[in-house]
């Protein structure tokens, strides 16, 4: 369960929020950001239902 929570946390904190901050700071291309965000979204919906349902 901890690993699923970690995946959920990383998916939105890193793959969505952090990458958009990096893009804002000019450290990452917009096209890369959009791909990483989509991966983050897919990971969130793949991992979160399992642990959120339990809690």
């Amino acid at each position: 369960m901890k690993i699923l929570k970690l995946i959920s946390g990383v998916s939105i904190a890193v793959l969505i929020l952090l990458v958009s901050i990096l893009s804002f700071l000019g450290k990452m291309e917009a096209s890369t950001v959009k791909v990483l965000m989509l991966i983050g979204t897919l990971l969130w919906f793949a991992a979160t239902p399992f642990w959120m349902k339990e809690e």
Partner: peptide
């Protein structure tokens, strides 16, 4: 934000 925005 591309496809993520559409889904959102």
């Amino acid at each position: 934000v591309g496809w993520t925005g559409i889904i959102c």
